[in-house]
Design a protein around this nucleic acid. Structure first.
Lengths: 213, 213
DNA sequence: TTCCAATGTCGAATAATTACTACAAACCAG
DNA sequence: CTGGTTTGTAGTAATTATTCGACATTGGAA
C-alpha cells in the first residue's frame, strides 16, 4: 500500500489534497501534518512513499527542510507545493533536492497529474520549471552575467524576501513569516535594494512585475 | 435540495470545500466558479441557497461584489471566505451586506461549522469578528457618492500626500517636501489607507495607477 | 588546497513610522 | 444659526525599520 504525508497548514487545502489522493490511488494511507515539527515527527514514525510539502509551512520555510526530511527518509519522494508567488525561489528547492514542484494555484487536472506522476515515477517537473532550472544551473554571482533579468542577481533568500516585500508586506511581518529576526530581514531588504539599484518598495514592485516571468 | 455555489480561484481549495459540503449536507448540489464573471453567470442561471465567496477572486475584489450578487439573488446567503492578509479588510464585506465571514486558515472544524450554520440559519460570524465589527461600526461615510473612483474620497492635502507616497517617497521625506511634521504626514497616510481600504503603499500605488486620470 | 567573496543570520544603537489623542478652522445639513 | 463632520495640523508614546558591524558557512577561483 502506498502512503503519503501531506504537510500543509491550511486545513481546507490539506483536506482537498487528501481527497484527491484518496480518489486517485488505492489502497492508500494519507497522513496530514499542519506544521514542520509534526511533519518531522510523522517521518520518524512511519515510512512514506511521498511527501507533499508546502514551502510556507510554519516552522519550516527554508531550504534545510529538504535535508531534514532526507535525514529521516532518504528515499522519500518530495513534491514541493508552492503557494502564492514563490515561483522565483521555488526552484531553489528543486536544486536542494526535492523531486517535484507544484504550484498551489494549478488547475485540478495538473494537481492530479503531479501526484500520480510522483507516486509512479518519483518525479514531477513541468517544462516551464525545467527550463528555468536550466538557466539557473551553472552561473551564479558576477553582476555582468544577469544582463537581461536583474532579479537573477539575488540570492535565494533575497528573492524570497523580495516577493513578500513586493506584495507590500512589512519587514516585521516578513520576519514572522520566515521566522527570522527583523534585522535580518532588513539586511536582506537593504541588499536587495542595492543589487537592484532602487530605493523603495514601489520600485521593487515594478521590477518584480516587469521581470518576474 | 440545497444548492451551493463555491467561488474560489484555487482549484484545491475549491475541491476541498466542495468535498466538505458534500460530506456535510445531502442531498446537495454544488457548483464551482473560478472567477467573478463565472460566479455572476452561474447566479443568473440557477438559484442557490448559499454562496461561498473568496474575497480575492479574480475579477472581483471589491465591495461591489456583494451588490452584484444581491442584484441577481436577493435572498442568497453569502459567506465571505477571506484569505490571509485581508482579515482587517474583510469586515467591510459584512457591513456591505454579506451574511458570514470565514477565514481560509480556519481549522477544518470551524469550516464545517460555518458552512452548516450558514445553510441552517443563513448567518455565521465568529465572536472575534463580531467584536471587531462593533468597533468599526460608527465611522462609515456615505460610500455611495464616489462610486467609480475611490480616490475622489480624499481631501486635497491627502491627495497630495498620496501622490508622493505612490512614488515611493518616505513619510519623512514627504514631511520635508511639504513642510509638515512627520506625524502630520503619517496621519494623512493613515487616513488615506483607511479611506481607500488598503494597508500598504504597494496597494496604494496600484490604486493610483488604476484610478489616476 | 587555500582563500575570498557571497550568503544567511543577528545584536545593539539609532532613526523612522505609527497609534492615539487633540484641537481649531472650514463645511454643511437641517 | 447650530451642531455634527471633515480637514489640516501636531505632540507623546509606542512600534518598527535601518545601520553597522560581526561571524559562521559555502562554493568557487586560483
Amino acid at each position: 500500500m502506498k502512503s503519503v504525508l501531506v504537510s500543509e497548514d491550511h486545513a481546507i487545502v490539506r483536506f482537498g489534497i487528501t481527497a484527491i489522493i484518496k480518489d486517485l490511488i488505492h489502497p492508500v494511507q494519507v497522513v496530514e501534518a499542519a506544521d514542520f515539527d509534526e511533519t518531522i515527527r510523522r517521518l520518524s514514525e512511519t515510512a512514506f512513499d511521498l511527501l507533499i510539502l508546502d514551502i510556507n509551512i510554519p516552522g519550516g520555510n527554508n531550504l534545510q527542510m529538504i535535508s531534514a526530511v532526507r535525514l529521516r527518509q532518504p528515499d522519500i519522494a518530495i513534491l514541493i507545493f508552492s503557494g502564492y508567488d514563490e515561483q522565483m525561489f521555488g526552484i531553489n528547492y528543486i536544486q536542494a533536492g526535492a523531486d517535484g514542484y507544484l504550484e498551489k494555484h494549478a488547475p485540478e487536472e495538473e494537481i492530479r497529474r503531479a501526484i500520480l506522476t510522483m507516486i509512479e515515477s518519483g518525479k514531477y517537473i513541468t517544462p516551464g520549471i525545467r527550463s528555468r532550472l536550466m538557466e539557473h544551473t551553472g552561473h551564479h554571482r558576477q553582476t555582468a552575467s544577469h544582463e537581461g533579468n536583474p532579479l537573477l542577481a539575488l540570492s535565494g533568500r533575497e528573492k524570497e524576501v523580495m516577493q513578500l516585500l513586493a506584495r507590500g508586506m512589512s519587514v516585521m511581518n516578513i520576519s514572522r513569516t520566515l521566522n527570522l529576526q527583523v534585522t535580518t530581514v532588513s539586511t536582506y531588504k537593504g541588499r536587495i535594494f542595492e543589487k537592484l539599484n532602487i530605493s523603495n518598495v514601489i520600485e521593487l514592485a515594478e521590477k518584480v512585475r516587469l521581470y518576474s516571468n
